[in-house]
């Protein structure tokens, strides 16, 4: 087996990398692929709680990279979604315990074992970022429709291009009402500014917080619009590029929608 390593990154913190990693990882596993999601936020681990697997950590990614345990010992199997595995971050180390060369080597081990490996990158563009992208074949850049987030995405996209990786963009936490009102950058605006290919649009959704409260996978939540959006992104990552990108729409009243349709909304 020769798997693919995809880094999920953004530059800025709090834009949805961890949420995206957990959900897209789950989506790929539901597509029948063998998937590992790796928490690279060493010292500040969170992917475990988002996935509801925090009570089952024995070994972590640093142990696995340093050869203190076997890969299989560090990989926690999700019991709700088949073929999904979490490799948690260590909480006691800092990002400098690993170097990019370690990760390139570890990447080969991972690729022999899984179809898809998602690296949940920490915020910033220092060592944690370098370790996360060291072995990456592809990249997903997450940003929010907000000035500072888009600017940071631009910086990260430049760094990825410098490594010959052409990233795909996810715009997360879209509030359709605000976009329609002209108070939030639309995905067209963002793509125009960043000149990068889009892979999915995810609306702001209360279910994201509800699912992290309980540790239940967002993608298994029936009415979650964000969950559904991440599932479509997973399918597109998995080669279903014919799948159209759905634009989040406001729930608004009939007249409001008609207004938008006839260009009166803005």
């Amino acid at each position: 087996m020769e798997g693919k390593i995809i880094v999920v990154t953004s530059g800025k913190g709090g834009v949805g990398k961890t949420t995206a990693t957990a959900s897209i990882g789950a989506g790929l596993a539901m597509e029948g692929k063998r998937v590992a999601v790796v928490d690279m936020d060493i010292g500040l681990r969170n992917l475990d709680v988002v996935m509801g697997l925090e009570n089952r950590i024995v070994f972590n990614v640093v142990d696995a990279v340093k050869g203190k345990c076997k890969l299989a010992q560090a990989a926690i199997k999700d019991r709700r979604i088949n073929n999904l595995f979490l490799i948690p971050a260590s909480q006691s180390d800092n990002k400098n315990v690993l170097i990019p060369e370690d990760m390139v080597r570890f990447g080969e081990t991972l690729k022999a074992e899984y179809d898809y490996i998602l690296m949940d990158c920490p915020a910033g563009i220092e060592r944690g970022f370098e370790n996360s992208v060291a072995a990456a074949d592809e990249a997903l850049v997450v940003c929010m429709p907000e000035v500072s987030s888009v600017r940071d995405a631009d910086r990260v996209i430049g760094l990825l291009y410098a490594r010959s990786i052409t990233p795909k963009l996810i715009v997360n936490r879209i509030v359709p009402e605000m976009v329609e009102r002209g108070d939030m950058l639309s995905h067209e605006d963002i793509v125009d500014v960043l000149s990068v290919d889009l892979i999915g649009l995810v609306p702001m959704d209360d279910n994201v917080i509800v699912s992290t409260n309980t540790g239940n996978p967002l993608v298994l939540q029936k009415e979650s619009k964000a969950g559904a959006a991440f599932l479509r992104i997973a399918m597109r990552v998995n080669g279903r590029t014919d799948l159209p990108i759905e634009v989040p729409r406001a729930q608004g009243k009939f007249w409001k929608r008609m207004g938008t349709k006839f260009g009166l909304g803005k």
Partner: peptide, 11 residues
């Protein structure tokens, strides 16, 4: 629209 201002500033 405030988003037009945002876009201009971003560019």
């Amino acid at each position: 629209d405030s988003k037009d201002v945002a876009k201009k500033r971003l560019k």
